[in-house]
């Protein structure tokens, strides 16, 4: 068998791998976005716990931050991958459910990323909250604002404004961390549907970008081509998102006085 050229390997369609690599990039982006949102959720909860008066809540949140910022992400992914389904099944059985409760690979991967990035996120959110000038909150109170209005109209927007640069950093972190799910393999499947002679959809394995590069490298035994392509696609993702965050920062700080 003759080794194929770069262009042959990177064709679009059943002969080449370009279509698979593009879909994989899409899945990587999806993993990163969902993982980031999970992180935002966990991070916000932890930040609330840290800022709340409760000593116990603060301790728990601090422990969460220390553990998940100090332990390698890969180890956390292994924990979720090998232990995740067992836990969910056990919890399900406790409540009377039967059999395996599938935690799809996608959920396992994004939850693991969410837990890790949430640990970083909680510090960013806490810092941003503390940066909100107390005078503004007092002023709002003086105007009779309270509770939800205060949160939505005064604190929320400013936390977003002060936290955005930090969140941008975490987004970059999450985007790169999403590559780790390749180690345990996270795939989304679509199956072939046939109506007589008409094939409506291929059974297609959507993997994340690095995993796809891995599979293609294994199948064609041409690792360099696929890993360098993965590098290029990641650079596109990180560059594009840097630009997006910069726009978002401009938008979030539009009302700020510049010195």
């Amino acid at each position: 068998m003759q080794a194929k050229s770069f262009l042959e390997l990177m064709q679009w369609g059943p002969q080449g791998w370009l279509d698979e690599m593009m879909f994989a990039t899409g899945l990587t982006l999806a993993v990163a976005i969902v993982g980031f949102l999970f992180g935002l959720l966990f991070g916000t909860l932890a930040a609330i716990a840290k800022l709340s008066g409760s000593r116990l809540a603060k301790r728990l949140a601090d422990a969460y931050t220390t553990v998940f910022r100090g332990v390698p992400d890969l180890l956390v992914i292994y924990l979720f991958y090998f232990g995740g389904s067992a836990v969910v099944t056990a919890i399900g059985q406790f409540f009377g459910a039967q059999g395996f409760i599938g935690l799809p690979g996608f959920l396992i991967g994004t939850l693991a990323i969410g837990i890790v990035s949430g640990a970083y996120q909680s510090e960013v959110i806490r810092g941003a909250y503390l940066a909100v000038p107390p005078g503004e909150v007092e002023a709002a109170r003086a105007f009779g604002m309270s509770g939800r209005a205060l949160l939505w109209r005064i604190i929320g927007p400013q936390v977003l404004r002060y936290g955005l640069p930090g969140m941008g950093n975490i987004w970059q972190l999450v985007l790169k961390e999403s590559a780790l799910v390749a180690v345990v393999g996270l795939s989304v499947y679509l199956y072939e549907v046939r109506l007589g002679d008409l094939v409506l959809i291929y059974e297609t394995r959507f993997s994340d970008l690095l995993r796809q590069a891995h599979v293609a490298a294994g199948s064609t035994r041409q690792p360099f081509v696929f890993y360098i392509t993965a590098v290029a696609f990641y650079l596109v993702l990180t560059t594009a998102s840097t630009w997006c965050f910069r726009r978002a920062e401009t938008w979030a700080t539009r009302g700020m006085r510049r010195v």
Binding site: G16, E20, Y202, E203, R205, V215, A216, S219
Partner: peptide, 16 residues
């Protein structure tokens, strides 16, 4: 497994 040719592997269409 999908990575143990020719027993089981993934072809370039992403199929097992």
């Amino acid at each position: 497994e999908g990575a143990y040719a020719p027993w089981n592997f993934v072809n370039s269409q992403g199929k097992l």
